[in-house]
Write a protein that binds this DNA or RNA. Structure first.
Length: 589
DNA sequence: CGCTGCTGCGCG
DNA sequence: AAAGCGCGCAGCAGCG
């Protein structure tokens, strides 16, 4: 039996997933978990208060549950169990998230968008919008009927999405989807006192910054207009952009920051404010047991990478100390436990050479542990005996920059600006990179040719790029606009037409394959738990943070995890992986 | 007031 | 002919 299940809960501007995080939201004094809707493929359609439902109807060995956003609904059911509105002993064979499924198949996640794209059905969210700010008791009988109808509809469409597309949602992807949910609901351990101290430190920074900003009392502190006005007032020129990495802004800052304290103060204010918000979110989401559950969008990027969600993003915590505060270190193992932190070394350039079929480079990479030295030797730029990192740091740095950007078609102009070399030198380096890597430039051309011919295919203008893991990267409705190629991909919750060319497709493929390699490792680490318990508590694209059950198993776990991450998946024969692991009490760079 | 888009900044 | 890419969040500005 297949069971689609949806829940409706009170939400408002002040009480929401985004404000409190899922755990505190469901336990907020104003929370109301008022409706459950259940639709099965055997004809059952039910909606009402969860305590009135006969849960035994949908429990059993051969039952698959579905929800559109199972991460949410599973937490709601857990809360219903705490409240005595659902039985404690529910056993579920599999709980599939159809939002995750939509994302994995290359569509937007929301039920509305997914139904439009995958079923050709237009859904109205008017009822849901009107539910905002209302508890069940606040609704009149007519609106309650609307809500019940709406909730049943949601479950019907959730079921239909699965019935029509479920066969394309592979075991591999379902397992990752499930692993993501369980990881996030377990959460990460936090250093509560450390967070409080860090917040105080940053608030002092904010206060000091404000003292140095003349317009702080009358205008928005970060207003570009206010900053320009101040420049005019004191008689100095202003850059077009104030971005930290903008060369013009850098010059402006260098020239004037000594005479005008507000220049540095604005930057400090912006950064302190940003990070204090992160710390406050962490603080407010902390549970009694010292852990913080969090959200992660499985397949948040169209390439398959995870992305952050619901107010706090553990994928972009700053590295090292900023304004006297190390945000990462607030994620701290409790006494007696240890983190195993392990990442895939330079996964993307390795995948790039592998996809390009550059066997000569792959051989160098296998023999030389330092990827950049391997590249330097393969390209004939280095032939001495010693390790490059000991003998020529400057060359190694340059190779690193080349490997990072030039593999995806970056031009000389852009390279000059990001790597700080003269335009003529950038020109030479770009030419050199391309001449030394003919297989990579061929890959760009092949991918672009593929896209271009798809645009002209009268039967199917969707471009499908099969990946080694078995999944497919899809660009829909490819067309030629003004000579350039465009296609539809999911972006910001909806299908969006964007421009593409060989370099971009190449980068997307590399990112997607790197993601599959990484997730394959994660699944193998999860399997390790059967013999050596050390669950993953965080994933950051190519890095896992695992937590040992006790210090005694830390060395064993480190060895096992590093071994797993150095071993390519079955479907990636010949891909040379490297892994770097360490033990730590806290999350760090 | 709410929505959308942009900038700035953090990560891989 | 020429082109690095993928995200989220805070704050601000402009629009209706």
């Amino acid at each position: 039996m297949i069971v689609a299940l949806d829940t409706e809960t009170f939400y408002s501007d002040e009480v929401s997933l985004k404000v409190q995080g899922i755990y505190q939201y469901l336990r907020h004094p104003q929370a109301d978990l008022y409706l459950l809707s259940v639709v099965t493929d055997t004809g059952l359609e039910w909606a009402g208060h969860p305590k009135d439902f006969d849960w035994s109807q949908i429990v059993g060995e051969d039952v698959t549950w579905l929800s559109h956003n199972a991460a949410f609904d599973s937490m709601v059911v857990e809360r219903m169990q705490e409240l005595g509105h659902a039985p404690e002993d529910i056993v579920i064979k599999e709980w599939v998230c159809t939002a995750d499924m939509a994302a994995a198949l290359g569509y937007p996640r929301s039920l509305k968008e997914a139904c439009q794209q995958m079923l050709g059905v237009e859904l109205s969210k008017t009822v849901r919008d009107n539910m905002k700010g209302k508890r069940w008791g606040d609704m009149d009988i007519f609106f309650q009927q609307d809500v019940i109808k709406y909730a049943i509809d949601d479950s019907r469409y959730c079921l239909r999405l699965y019935q029509e597309h479920g066969d394309k949602f592979s075991k591999f992807e379902r397992d990752i989807s499930y692993l993501t949910r369980s990881m996030c609901s377990e959460g990460v351990p936090l250093d509560k006192e450390g967070i409080d101290r860090a917040i105080t430190t940053l608030q002092t920074e904010i206060w000091e910054a404000k003292i140095n900003i003349p317009w702080a009392d009358r205008e928005a502190i970060l207003s570009p207009g206010a900053i320009r006005d101040e420049c005019k007032k004191v008689g100095i020129w202003a850059p077009n952009s104030f971005a930290k990495d903008d060369p013009e802004a850098e010059k402006w800052e260098d020239e004037f920051h000594l005479q005008h304290a507000w220049i540095k103060a604005v930057r400090s204010y912006r950064r302190a404010n940003k990070h204090v918000a992160t710390l406050q979110a962490m603080r407010s989401r902390l549970r009694e047991d010292g852990t913080m559950p969090y959200s992660l969008k499985y397949f948040g990027a169209h390439t398959g990478r995870d992305s952050g969600d619901a107010g706090i993003n553990l994928q972009n915590l700053p590295k090292g100390e900023i304004l006297g505060v190390d945000v990462r270190s607030m994620i701290r193992a409790p006494k007696g436990k240890t983190f195993v932190i392990c990442d895939l070394a330079q996964i993307e350039p390795r995948v790039l050479h592998w996809l390009a079929g550059d066997t000569k480079m792959l051989q160098y990479i296998r023999e030389i542990p330092d990827l950049y030295e391997a590249q330097a030797r393969a390209w004939g730029l280095y032939s001495k005996d010693g390790a490059l990192k000991d003998t020529d740091k400057a060359l190694r740095h340059q190779i690193k920059q080349l490997a990072l950007g030039l593999g995806y078609g970056m031009g000389a102009k852009k390279f000059a600006s990001v790597s700080d070399v003269e335009p003529a030198e950038a020109e030479r380096l770009v030419k050199m990179y391309r001449s030394k890597n003919p297989l990579i430039t061929k890959l760009w051309r092949d991918l672009e040719d593929n896209l271009r011919s798809t645009a002209q295919d009268p039967n199917d203008t969707d471009a499908h790029f099969p990946l080694p893991s078995g999944r497919t990267l899809t660009y829909r409705k490819v067309s030629v606009d003004h000579g350039g190629l465009t296609a539809m991909i999911p972006r910001q919750g909806q299908m969006m037409r964007l421009g593409f060319w060989g370099g971009v497709i190449c980068e997307n493929l590399v990112q997607a394959v790197a993601r599959d390699v990484f997730m394959d490792c994660c699944l193998r680490i999860a399997k390790l738990n059967e013999t050596l318990y050390c669950p993953i508590i965080m994933r950051v694209h190519d890095e896992v943070v695992c937590q040992t059950i006790d210090d005694g198993t830390a060395d064993l776990a480190l060895e096992a995890i590093t071994h797993i991450m150095s071993t390519p998946p079955e479907w990636a024969e010949g891909l040379p992986l490297g892994a770097e692991g360490s033990l730590s009490q806290c999350y760090k760079k």
